[in-house]
Structures are given as structure tokens and as C-alpha cells.
């Protein structure tokens, strides 16, 4: 791709959308924060003009919706401006959430792949497990997360693992479904081919089913890693955890620190984007090594 087409194909459209979002964000912030300023003025028995309101709506300490520059200032202050070991550093909190996300994602991937392998090879597992796997995802995670934390705490497991378990609970599902589909994706002709070689079930698995499933696995891993992050954040909410992005969200909402909430939210979004991108890049590399025709 030449420079001009990179600009035209990537930077221009993405940049336009970002600018539009920021513009809408400012407008909404003004609209939502203005009533507070009017109230204040009324209480002080003064009248206030719109041109006076405008700058104030962007500088409130606890705005309904903080203006973008307030959030970015907070982000800057809590990432670059603090030591990463500090409890006030967003990098520190992100790391706490990230570590349970990654552990949960890993556990979810292992569990999902194991379930898929079982389901594809044993008809009874297909019939007995699939309904439970699907049912598991219809229970709202917010209902089940506190129970997982409480139960695991009762048996003496606390810290990283309970949160990772919630991430696993969410992320194993797309992996199990995608991997099952992938392991079943080989054409009948290829299965017949293995049969003419009188290949064993395990040879057929390693040489045909597994490689055929890799692109499916990559796709479901992209979904799984972002919901693993959601799981980790949700896992931090019911425990009143003191660290992690979830804890920052919760603390922020207790004290009406909207700027803190929004910066934690943005951080979570950036983290999710980063994680998905990492899986994407690794996946593209694996696919290329496996001879997938470049698009």
C-alpha cells in the first residue's frame, strides 16, 4: 500500500469518525451539564448567559458527562503522570484486570477446545453437553459472578483466580462453538481420503481436523478475548475489589467521579482493542504460515 492510499483508506475514514465522535461528545456534554450551571445561577439569584455557561460546562468537577479534554487530562495524569506501582495509576489497575483477563482467556480457550474435541469425537457428549453449554450462556453473568466469587472465597481461593474463572465462564463459549464447527469443517472428500489411507482417528484429528479448525479458532479467539475482558471487569464489581478497572468504575460511581469512570471506560476500550488486535496479528501470521491465500 502506498502512503497516499494508506491515508485515503485508513487514516481519513477513521480520523473523520473520531472527529465526529468528539464533536458530538462536546455538544452532548454542554447539553447535559448546562442544567447544573443554570440551577447554580438560580440559587445565587443571578442570571447567566449561554456564553457564560459554555466554558463552565466543560470544567465541572463532577459533570454528568465530562468533556473529552477532561477525560484525556485524567487519563494522562493517571498513566504518564503516576508511577505504575501507585494505587492511583491507571496502568496499575489495567494490569490487574489484564492479568485476570489473560488467565481467564487461556483457561477458557483450553476448556473450549477440550469440550469441542470431546463433542466432535463422542456423539453422547454432543447430545449431553451442548444443551448445557448453551444454557450456561443464558444465565446473566451479573447474577452468577458474585456466586462464583463467594463460593471460591469460601474454599479459600481469592485474588486472581475467581476473576479469571468468570472470564473463563464467558470466553469458553465462543471457543467451544467455533472449534466444534472448525473440527467438523473438513469436506467429506478429505475424510474419505484419510479413510483410503486407513488413517486412525488420532491421525485424522492431527493431520486433518485440527489444521482445518485453526481459522475458526482464530476467529472465535478474537470474540473470546474481548468478552474475557468484560468478565474480568464484571468480576471486580461484586467483590468491592480495591484494584482493577472494575474497581475504578465502582469507586468512581460511589463518589460521583464521572471523570474517573470515563477514563476507566476509555482505558478498558483501548485494552480490548489492543487485545483483539494482538490476536488478529498472531492469527494472520498463523494463517499465512498455513498457506491461506492472501486477500
Amino acid at each position: 500500500m502506498s502512503d497516499s492510499s494508506l491515508f485515503r483508506d485508513k487514516i481519513l475514514p477513521i480520523g473523520t469518525v473520531v472527529l465526529a465522535i468528539i464533536a458530538i461528545w462536546y455538544a452532548t456534554a454542554v447539553f447535559l451539564n448546562a442544567p447544573f450551571e443554570r440551577d447554580q445561577a438560580e440559587r445565587a439569584k443571578t442570571t447567566i448567559s449561554f456564553s457564560e455557561i459554555l466554558p463552565r460546562t466543560m470544567a465541572q468537577e463532577r459533570p454528568v458527562l465530562p468533556a473529552p479534554h477532561q477525560v484525556f487530562a485524567e487519563l494522562w495524569d493517571t498513566t504518564i503522570g503516576k508511577k505504575i506501582t501507585s494505587k492511583r495509576s491507571l496502568v496499575y489497575h489495567s494490569w490487574i484486570t489484564l492479568s485476570s483477563t489473560l488467565l481467564g482467556f487461556l483457561m477458557g480457550t483450553v476448556l473450549g477446545v477440550a469440550l469441542a474435541v470431546g463433542i466432535v469425537h463422542f456423539q453422547t457428549l454432543d447430545r449431553s453437553l451442548m444443551p448445557w453449554i448453551i444454557t450456561s450462556q443464558t444465565i446473566p453473568i451479573l447474577a452468577i459472578a458474585p456466586m462464583i466469587i463467594v463460593v471460591l472465597n469460601a474454599v479459600g481461593i481469592s485474588g486472581l483466580l475467581p476473576k479469571a474463572t468468570i472470564s473463563m465462564y464467558l470466553s469458553f463459549f465462543p471457543i467451544a462453538v467455533g472449534m466444534t464447527k472448525g473440527l467438523r469443517s473438513p469436506e467429506v472428500m478429505h475424510l474419505d481420503l484419510m479413510r483410503t489411507y486407513s488413517a486412525s482417528a488420532s491421525q485424522t484429528f492431527w493431520k486433518l481436523r485440527l489444521p482445518a479448525a485453526v481459522p475458526f479458532l482464530v476467529t472465535s479467539m478474537k470474540v473470546a478475548i474481548s468478552i474475557a475482558l468484560v468478565g474480568a471487569i464484571v468480576g471486580e464489581l461484586p467483590t468491592g475489589a480495591v484494584a482493577g478497572l472494575g474497581a475504578r468504575l465502582l469507586a468512581g460511581s460511589y463518589y460521583g467521579q464521572t471523570v474517573q469512570i470515563w477514563s476507566a471506560l476509555l482505558m478498558a476500550a483501548a485494552l480490548a482493542g489492543l487485545l483483539v488486535m494482538t490476536v488478529d496479528i498472531i492469527g494472520a501470521r498463523v494463517n499465512r504460515r498455513m498457506g491461506v491465500k492472501p486477500a
Binding site: 478429505h190 483410503t196 489411507y197 491421525q203 498455513m290 491461506v292
Partner: peptide, 26 residues
């Protein structure tokens, strides 16, 4: 016997030599 299907039925993720290697590995 060796069976040749109507379509080539090569595994897309294997190179030509690895495709030919497949039955030999089995």
C-alpha cells in the same frame, strides 16, 4: 490401492510436497 478423486482434494494448508507426504506420514 491409491484413490484419485474427481477433484484434486489437496489439503489447502499443506504445500505440494507436504500433500504428497500426507499418506506417507500416515
Amino acid at each position: 490401492y491409491g484413490y484419485v478423486f474427481q477433484q484434486a482434494a489437496l489439503l489447502p494448508w499443506r504445500t505440494i510436497e507436504d500433500n504428497i507426504s500426507l499418506p506417507l506420514e500416515v
